[in-house]
């Protein structure tokens, strides 16, 4: 199949995947708390309802920036599967996250602004990892595209165990899971209200949710890169990793931003940096 078709496929399929994942997440979380939880399709009901509601706009820049957030997030995934250089994807990915930061930061609400600042902190914490991860994957496989990595005979996860471990850690940030959900909150009555999304209503909030679906799908694609010899194995690994994230989410409380930044950088430097260094020294 043409890589371009894969890219288009991502734009269509990723939200379905991400939405279902969010549905499973909510059910599993509820079961962990001794509840039954909502229907599987609940995330789709929520987003559908948000589109039926009024969108209160507090200034004219929020909606375009949020459209940019969804657009660049979808573009990051589509470009990745569409055969664009993987390192370039790291930058588009960061740009998408930045759009959300700017949308929330442009609002005068203290909650929204604090969320934006903290999102900037977690972006600062996680971005070095993603650049290093994609660079390391390109290095071991001598490939530059998604298809190239999948076609490579090198088993990425075996060459990059440290990077894979660090991925588990950093994905907590990107999946907005506790203890690293410092910029937003799905739970009421906290110091942040809803952080980043405090002043986004109706379809504005729906854009954020959809972008998150794309983001989850892209993270899943990244996991598949590690298990490039078998895509089903990669999907299984993602499922296990996601399960662990949900468990951590339900068993920890939110950390301070200082801890998030320090620990993520330490893990990136130790595991990812160490792995990359070993790779270069061994001449792989």
């Amino acid at each position: 199949m043409n890589p371009l078709a894969y890219g288009l496929l991502f734009v269509v399929v990723a939200p379905i995947f991400g939405g279902l994942l969010a549905g499973v997440d909510r059910i599993v979380s509820a079961r962990m708390q001794g509840r039954i939880g909502p229907p599987l399709l609940q995330p789709f009901y929520d987003v559908g309802k948000l589109f039926q509601k009024e969108a209160r706009q507090v200034n004219p820049v929020v909606e375009p920036l949020l459209l940019g957030h969804v657009g660049f997030m979808a573009a990051a995934g589509a470009l990745a599967l569409g055969g664009t250089d993987l390192i370039f994807i790291a930058f588009v990915f960061a740009l998408a996250a930045l759009c959300l930061v700017l949308a929330a930061g442009s609002v005068n609400s203290p909650y929204s602004f604090a969320g934006a600042e903290r999102e900037l902190v977690v972006l600062l914490a996680s971005e070095p990892f993603f650049i290093l991860m994609l660079a390391a994957i390109c290095k071991v496989t001598s490939a530059s595209t998604f298809a190239g990595v999948l076609a490579s005979p090198v088993m990425v996860a075996l060459e990059l165990p440290g990077v894979l471990l660090a991925f588990l850690f950093v994905a907590t940030i990107k999946l907005r899971k506790s203890p690293f959900d410092i910029s937003t909150s799905h739970h009421p009555h906290q110091e942040l209200v809803n952080g980043l999304t405090s002043d986004m209503s109706g379809r504005l909030l729906a854009y954020v949710e959809m972008a998150h679906w794309y983001e989850s799908a892209l993270l899943c694609a990244f996991v598949v890169l590690f298990f490039n010899w078998s895509v089903p194995l990669g999907l299984l690994a993602f499922a296990i990793a996601y399960g662990l994230e949900v468990l951590v989410d339900n068993s920890t409380s939110r950390a301070k931003w200082q801890l998030v930044l320090r620990s993520t950088w330490a893990v990136t430097l130790l595991f990812t940096g160490g792995n990359v260094l070993a790779l270069f020294l061994l001449g792989r």
Binding site: L98, V101, L102, G105, S106, V107, L120, L123, I131
Partner: peptide, 19 residues
């Protein structure tokens, strides 16, 4: 390069807010 995102992002937030 991640650090550059942080300081430019802060400046952008300030410029883009409205009242």
């Amino acid at each position: 390069s991640s650090l550059t995102i942080f300081y430019w992002g802060k400046l952008l937030i300030k410029i883009l807010s409205m009242r």
